[in-house]
Nucleic acid binder design. Structure first.
Lengths: 356, 356
DNA sequence: TTGTAAGCGTTATCAA
DNA sequence: TTGATAACGCTTACAA
């Protein structure tokens, strides 16, 4: 009878045969609180009792229910991480770094994929807020400032990573995108290019804006013109890099050097250049943001502006944990990107574009 | 006084100013249950009351506490996903696919990185079991069968992905690794190679074993010898691909064709080949598992065995949800990899290896 | 249509 | 050193 009841009970609920503290306590004729203490504060319970308990716990393969614990304690050991594309190696590195730091602290990481879609970001934020995560790290689309502010007011520590959301009380970890773009421009200028083009990202993202601004600034400092026809605004995805490149190549006088503001669009640009048999670097010098693995395997290898991706993720997670352990001041860290010169950028040679 | 008490209370607990059902109910002079119903079963509450409630809920930015809900309902809306390297594009694609399906079902995904480390996998499994996730998808290291069995007995639905764990009651989504390796071998054999080498993964992983077996089978069917010196067992990481390649190149008669069993080791192999100026495909034909993005950007582009990665992740997640909605039979899906012929594999040419 | 109350599995407070 | 008990925020019989 009893066993029948038990089975029915556990079939009604989702968790099937999960042992609980109460059951362990019953087996041992002890009180739940004693068993609980034996696990969380072993020194507060007599040696003999403790051993009996630990034995039973092991033999029943008991695992504490962190849901119940979280509810009782009023805190979770879960971090929320929102990125715009897990498959982009840039974010993959961040995910890995954050997960690493988090698990080192005994925290788990819930990864949400916003896909550059404000609607998906909204859902992700709601999800994380309902999960009552201990904190949120996110590369913002910039569209959900209102929700972020509300979450922040509710006490969720928030860390902006890679992009600024507009939150005033969030810690921030950024790469100096202007400096990176300047490095790229100056490198091309030093090589002697005077007709330079740029494919950047959406202007509502700090990354897209700053990388264009930096490029523009360097050019104007060198008194080199940047006509509108040589400026393309993509969406940081492969397709837009392809299309922008096609249009640039269609110009009556195409550029001799091209700066692409992230790795995805660079991949698109490459495809377009290959299709049209544009020789790199002879017909066009190419430089892009992000030192992805394949950059060095290309022929010629790709000159890039490298971002310290792991450091970005590590730092963001560390700032979050500092915040969780009481830091009050808002911290803003700006990391410096570096130029890695490879074969895809050389001085301009006045060679005609080969026919496709 | 009241406000002081409140502040003190919320400072003691971690969750700071999170509105609860009780508070909403109090503001409205309603019972919690009514408020709860207004949100989860709106039709069971009077139009007027419902509107009053929804207004207040919105103005207080109330978000249900999913911890409490999970505890009460005895189920979570969280999936656990264990992969051995988030940064490997193969797993990144799986993570993305799983997360996509999960969020479509209103589920969140906790991603754990096992790093090919059984110890880390153990921790991840314990974490997920304590979180009482609704189900677990994992590419097993093969070392934690005991824990997996225990979890399975406790009622956690488990899906094996990419590798088999040994669980008998887990759904499984695999790629036919033997067939893939056979495709690779047959391709090289058809090109006329007779001295073929292979770099495979750990033999305790089905992927490492099957890819070697398939290769071996194809060669023996063609009556081509595979001497031990031409077989290298790596660990699926870049470094081991590099080292194995270096050793292969050091042989008195090096192979004319090389099959590398995953993309990471292929990257390592490439580095070694470049360093030693071994011309591909003239001195060595190269083929690898995994059609990563950069494979087609190489010069020559890399011939690969492509795995249907998104499909792998999608299917795994779908099987899990089917299981959650009651399916009892164990399902095992085997997906077929495909050969993508590119420039890195050609008939052997008897050209000496250029000096480094 | 709404209210009452029990309970999910823990932990923490208080008493014994 | 241990036990009894009340929470944590929510859902859901059941009663009104």
């Amino acid at each position: 009878m009893v066993s029948l009841l038990t089975i029915d009970f556990y079939q009604r609920k989702g968790w099937k045969r999960l042992v609980t503290l109460v059951e362990i306590a019953k087996k041992l004729n002890l009180n739940v609180s004693t068993v609980s203490r034996a696990l969380s504060r072993p020194d507060m319970v007599a040696e003999a009792t403790r051993e009996r308990i630990l034995e039973t716990v092991a033999s029943y393969e008991y695992r504490p229910n962190s849901i119940a614990r979280s509810l009782r304690k009023g805190k979770t050991c879960t971090l929320g991480l929102i990125v715009s594309d897990i498959q982009n190696p840039f974010y993959a590195a961040i995910v890995k770094a954050v997960e690493g730091i988090a698990s080192g602290h005994g925290y788990s990481t819930v990864v949400c994929n916003a896909d550059e879609n404000p609607q998906k970001e909204t859902e992700a934020l709601h999800l994380l807020s309902e999960m009552k995560v201990a904190g949120i790290i996110h590369g913002s689309t910039g569209a959900n400032l209102h929700i972020l502010q509300s979450l922040s007011r509710q006490g969720f520590p928030i860390v902006d990573i890679d992009r600024v959301s507009g939150l005033t009380d969030a810690d921030t970890v950024l790469v100096d995108n202007q400096a990176g773009a300047r490095l790229a421009a100056e490198h091309l200028l030093e090589l002697g290019h005077t007709r330079l083009a740029v494919i950047t990202g959406p202007q509502h993202l700090t990354t897209g804006r700053d990388r264009l601004d930096g490029f523009r600034l360097a050019l104007s400092a060198a008194k080199i013109a940047l006509p509108d026809a040589l400026v393309h605004i993509g969406d940081f995805r492969e397709g837009s890099g392809y299309e922008a490149t096609v249009r640039l190549l269609g110009l009556s006088s195409p550029p001799t050097a091209l700066f692409v503001a992230n790795n995805e669009m660079a991949a698109g640009a490459l495809t377009a250049l290959r299709e049209r048999s544009v020789l790199i670097p002879d017909a066009l010098s190419l430089i892009s943001f992000d030192d992805v693995r394949w950059a060095k395997y290309l022929e010629p290898a790709l000159t890039v502006i490298a971002q310290p991706t792991e450091q970005l993720g590590t730092l963001a997670a560390e700032l979050l944990f500092e915040r969780l352990s009481g830091r009050k001041e808002v911290v803003r860290r700006v990391l410096q990107p570096t130029l890695i010169t490879r074969g895809s950028s050389t001085p301009p040679r006045e060679i005609a574009v080969a026919d496709a």
